[in-house]
C-alpha cells in the first residue's frame, strides 16, 4: 500500500478525558476512494478517534495527517475547510432550524453557486428532505434526521466523510438504506468514507477495509471480507 494514496493517516494517536486515556497510540490510514470501517464495542474508543480526526477532541500525542497536511492541532473549522466532514453520533441536527437551513449551514465555509448545485444533489439523494425543507428539522423521524445529518456533511463538499454510528437507533430497513447510500456516495461521488459502527456486520459488509479497536488500541485489521471471516471478529462482534 503506497502511502501517497492515503487521504488520512493517523500515527500513534493518543487522547483521553482528563487523566483517563482513551486512545493508547492508534495508527491507521484511510486511502482515497475507500470505505473504511472501524468496529469495536462500546467504550473501545471509536467515537474518541473520530472526534480527534474532526478536531473536537484534543489529542495528547501522535499525529493526524490529512491530504498531505498535518492537522493534529488544527481547529475544527480549518479541518472542514480542508475537506473533513463528520456526521456525529446521535445526528446532532439543528432542531429548531428548518431543514434547508440545516443543509445550508453545512456549506457555511463555502461561497458561490456550488452551494445550490450541491443542495440539489442532496435533495436528489434524499427526496423526503426536499418535500419538507421549510419545516423545523426537529420534526423529522430518526432515519430522516440521519439523512439530514449526512446531507449536511455533504454540503461542505468533503473529501473525507466521517460517520459515527450511522445505524444507531434505526429500524433494520433504514439501516440498509443508510449503508446503501454510503456505498453510492463512494461509487458515484468519489467520497472517501471512514465509518465507526457497533453494527459490525453491516459496516464490514460494505467496507473495503476494516479495523477492530479494543480498549483504545487497534487489534485486528484487514479487508472487510477478511474481517467478516475472522474467527475472533465473528465471535466478539458478529455473535456467531
Amino acid at each position: 500500500m503506497r502511502s501517497d494514496e492515503a487521504l488520512l493517516q493517523i500515527n500513534a494517536l493518543r487522547s483521553g478525558y482528563g487523566r483517563i486515556e482513551a486512545l493508547h497510540g492508534v495508527s491507521m490510514e484511510v486511502n482515497r476512494g475507500e470505505i473504511v470501517a472501524l468496529v469495536g464495542s462500546n467504550g473501545a474508543g471509536k467515537t474518541t478517534l473520530l472526534r480527534a480526526v474532526s478536531g473536537v477532541q484534543p489529542v495528547s500525542g501522535g499525529a493526524i495527517v490529512f491530504d498531505g497536511h498535518d492537522v493534529t492541532n488544527a481547529q475544527p473549522h480549518a479541518r472542514v475547510k480542508r475537506g473533513i466532514a463528520q456526521v456525529p453520533e446521535g445526528r446532532q441536527i439543528f432542531s429548531p432550524l428548518s431543514i434547508e437551513d440545516n443543509l445550508r449551514l453545512g456549506a457555511y465555509l463555502r461561497k458561490g453557486s456550488e452551494i445550490d448545485r450541491d443542495l440539489d444533489m442532496v435533495y436528489d439523494l434524499f427526496p423526503v428532505l426536499k418535500e419538507r425543507r421549510r419545516n423545523p428539522a426537529g420534526g423529522l423521524s430518526g432515519g430522516q434526521q440521519q439523512m439530514l445529518a449526512i446531507g449536511r456533511a455533504l454540503m461542505s463538499g468533503p473529501k473525507l466523510l466521517l460517520l459515527d454510528e450511522p445505524s444507531m437507533g434505526l429500524a433494520p430497513i433504514l439501516v440498509d438504506q443508510v449503508f446503501q447510500i454510503v456505498e453510492k456516495l463512494r461509487d458515484e461521488s468519489g467520497v472517501t468514507v471512514f465509518l465507526v459502527e457497533q453494527n459490525a456486520f453491516a459496516a464490514l459488509s460494505i467496507a473495503d477495509r476494516g479495523y477492530v479497536i479494543e480498549t483504545g488500541e487497534i487489534s485486528i485489521s484487514g479487508t472487510g471480507r477478511e474481517l467478516l471471516d475472522d474467527e475472533r471478529v465473528r465471535e466478539a462482534y458478529l455473535g456467531v
Partner: peptide, 23 residues
Amino acid sequence: TVTGKAVLATAANRLAARLVGIN
C-alpha cells in the same frame, strides 16, 4: 444572514456548529 444563522446554529447545537465549520 448567514452569520445570524450561525449564531442560531451555535445556540441549537454547539458540537454540530463546530463540525460544520462555525468558529
